[in-house]
Structures are given as structure tokens and as C-alpha cells.
Design a protein around this nucleic acid. Sequence first.
DNA 1: ATCAAGGCTTGACAGTCGTCAAGGAAAATC
DNA 2: GATTTTCCTTGACGACTGTCAAGCCTTGAT
Lengths: 209, 209
Amino acid sequence: MTDVAQRKLDKIARRQVDKFDARRTELAVATLHTLAELGYARTSLREIAQNSEFSHGVLHYYFTDKRDLIVEAVRQYERVCVTKYDEVVAHATSADQLRDEFVAMFFGTLVQDATLHRLWYDLRDQSLYEEYFRADVLEIDGHREDMVWRVISRYAELREGTPATSPGTAYVTLDGIFQRALLHHFTGNAETVASLRAELPGVIDLLVA
Amino acid sequence: MTDVAQRKLDKIARRQVDKFDARRTELAVATLHTLAELGYARTSLREIAQNSEFSHGVLHYYFTDKRDLIVEAVRQYERVCVTKYDEVVAHATSADQLRDEFVAMFFGTLVQDATLHRLWYDLRDQSLYEEYFRADVLEIDGHREDMVWRVISRYAELREGTPATSPGTAYVTLDGIFQRALLHHFTGNAETVASLRAELPGVIDLLVA
DNA sequence: ATCAAGGCTTGACAGTCGTCAAGGAAAATC
DNA sequence: GATTTTCCTTGACGACTGTCAAGCCTTGAT
């Protein structure tokens, strides 16, 4: 086989692989939405397929089994959710501005992406029962911690102070507030969410005092 | 019917009710253990029955359906887990003692009752998907917050200071640390758990500074 | 134009689920 | 001791699950 022919075949192969991967992520996204809507416990392959434009059989063409599919959906989640606050950090010129915009985005995504956040906590806890995607969960959790730390350390910088806690503690504190706000958001308990929002600036200050 | 006969009947009726309730809680406890072991997603009625001394049919004699059973199991969890730290608070005579014993019990129950704690987070998140036991979850969450607040406010008292946050913020901070420690405990990541333990006293001080 | 390969649908499989009815065993009542 | 009531088991039902094989349709290569 000539070099030219070889290169041509490679190109074709690559195109096929690209197409294959594109379909995989397409189906992984459909899976993510289904999971966010129904939760891990009640998500079935047929339900996932109904949220895509294909039939249920196709899932076993692109994925070896359900686990493979869910792992891919989890990784898809990661791509969506771990750089949320970076633009806020990037263009904030004062501490107050950073804090206010962070709070706004914090509660903005809480409402806007509520089902997706609900899913994250579901998946993180499921990983305590089934090991198969725990590594991915830990990786995402680390990225979330990094994301929070970029905000807090930048805020300390603008305040000309230093963080009062480790990155891990800062993360779990803000994440705990987020979880609680999410619970009361789904309960329809708007005033509790509002009071959490009112408290958040003070907590941030506590983390850098 | 004479008064005596009436009272006798009442007594019998009460005994039957007591017996009925005793069986109910017995089965609810079996349900709780099954849930802790398998998680909400994979817990079936037949599996629950196998963790009791009865067959699967009996569950529909004492409970109207699966939801009824799970609600009762959730309430059973509440009875177990929301007074853990009260004895520590009661007999601590110095701030340092209270803090040290709290930390010890915090990480003691983390390891000892790990599967039960894992279940709590599972149930709390499931209540975001299905509303039927959300009220119970909110009630338990409130009791956990109260429990933490009894510790923190007493600690502040012994330190002759005042809490630096609201009860809610204090709770979610400690709970966030607990969740993270639980995750790394199940992962087998002992050094991360140890470093969270080393950090905890500092966080407590931060909450009352 | 023919043929092979890839992409997708359909339908079936074995297993599990919650639910419930029929009936046996045990206990309480008379 | 006989009879009614309570308690529990067994087995079945329809629905739903993940998985997979058979085959159709489309696409691209020759």
C-alpha cells in the first residue's frame, strides 16, 4: 500500500472515530439530562433513549453496558460545571465586586441548574455504594474545590488578607451552604434561600478574615 | 356493656396496637439496615424481608406500600442519630475537653456508623427527587442543626465568647466536613481523613472566634 | 451497479420489581 | 374444646429492567 493510500485510510478511520465519539457524547448528554430529571435510582436505558432521537438498542452499540454509559455521563457533567466562576474571578477589579458577583452567580446557578446540581449530590453519594465511578467523582470534587479556592484566594488578595482556612474547608463550607439552599429551593422555601443568600457574604469574609 | 367490660376491651385493643406497632418498628429497623447496606436505589422489599425473620409478603400486612415502609425507616433513623453529642456537651467542664471529645466522637461515629451516615445523605438527596418523605428529611435536618448548635453555643460559652455564625452556617460547615471525610473514608483514603481531623479543632475555633 | 460495512431498530430473553389474593398456622375468644 | 380473629407464607400477576441477537436501511468503496 502506498503512503498516499495509507494516509487516506487513516483519515477515514479518524473520521469514523470522531463520528463515533460524537454520538457517544450526544447520548451521554441525553443520559445526563435523564439522570438530572429522574435521579440515579429511577433512570432506565429506555427512558434515556426516549430523551434522545434514537431507540433503546443503540445504547449497546455505543456503550458496553449501563455503567459505561453512566461514567460517560458523569464525565460530561464535569465538562459543564467546574469553570462557572472563573470569568467572575477574571474580570473582578475589587473585593466587593468579586464577592457580590460570586454570590449572584452562586444563587443564579442554584435556581437555573437546580436539577443538575441535585444530580451531582446524588452521584457523589451513589459512589459510596458503588465503586465504579468513584474515581471520577473524586476528580470532579477536586476540581470543584480548586474552583472555590480560586475565588477565595483571589478575594483574599483583593482584600489584602489571607485565607483563614484550607482549600478543603473553604470548599465544604460553601458547598454545605449550597446543598442546604438547594434542599430549600426544591421545597419551595424561598425565605430560607433568601436568608442563606443574605448570610453568604459574611461567611466569605469569615473565610478570609 | 358495663364499664368494666369496656375497659377490658380497650386494654386488649391497646395491646394489639402496641404489638402491631412493635412489629412495624421491627420491620422498619430491618429496612433501615438494608437501606444502609444497599442504598435507596437497590433496596427491594424481598431484600428487606431477608434481613428480617419474615417473608416478603408480611411487609404489605404492616405497611400499605413501599413508601409507607421507607418513611417509617427514615423516622427510625431519626431516633438513632440526633442526640449523639448531647452527653459530651453535658459533662464537659472545659472548652478544650468539649472540643476534643466532640472531635473524637465526630470521627468515631464516622467510622463506626459509616453505612448509616451514607444512607442519610442518600435519603436527603432522594427527597429532592421524590417529595413523599421530604418533610421528615427537613425535620431531621433541623434536629441535626440543633444538635450541632448545642455543641457550638456551649463551646462559645466555655470559651467565654460568642458564636461567629448562625446555627445554619455552623451546621453546614461541620456537616460538609463530615460528608467529605465520609467520602474519603469509603475510598480508603486514611490520610485525608486524618488531615480533616487535624483541621477540625481550628474550624471549631473559627466558628466561635 | 454491486457489494460490503456501519448504524440503527425491533423484538425477544431471563430476571427482578411492587403488589396482592388465597390459604395455612397460630392465637385469642367464647 | 370449638370458633373466630389475627398473623404470616406462598405463589402468582403484570410491569419493568439490562442485555443482546437478528435483520433492515443507509452509506461509502470498488
